[in-house]
């Protein structure tokens, strides 16, 4: 059997709790989201560039939250969480990406929309 303890406070995962990291993560995430919101509502960039920029901001937010909130690092207690996250990423890209690609071609063939709804076909 693996090491076992009845006191939850002694679990290494629980010991990672850190108020400053949580606060830092909150402030940084709020700043990044505000930046994304600002980019979107002011139309400061072309639509495509705005999508890229907000995606980038979201990616940075994910990394910050993963590290500061979920404590994903390479320590003994956490490495498998990090590995699971890293392995999940290509899967996410494959499933969502291929689905989007398929629907893009499919809409053009089967769901010809009236002009007002044509935004759904892209």
């Amino acid at each position: 059997m693996t090491q076992h303890t009845q006191n939850p406070l002694e679990h290494p995962e629980v010991q990672l709790a850190n108020g400053r990291a949580y606060l830092g993560s909150f402030i940084l995430s709020a700043l990044l989201m505000t930046a994304g919101l600002w980019l979107t509502i002011t139309h400061a960039m072309s639509p495509f560039a705005a999508i890229l920029a907000t995606s980038l901001l979201a990616g940075v937010a994910v990394i910050i939250q993963g590290y500061l909130l979920l404590h994903m690092d390479l320590s003994h207690a956490q490495i498998w969480h990090t590995v699971a996250m890293v392995l999940f990423l290509p899967l996410f890209v494959v499933t969502i990406g291929l689905t989007a690609w398929m629907f893009h071609g499919l809409y053009e063939r089967t769901m010809i929309m009236p002009p007002a709804m044509s935004s759904m076909s892209h």
């Binding site: 398929m102 071609g105 499919l106 063939r109």
Partner: peptide
């Protein structure tokens, strides 16, 4: 289902 030919090929 009528996906695009390049999708089906993939």
């Amino acid at each position: 289902m009528a996906a695009a030919p390049n999708v089906n090929s993939f």
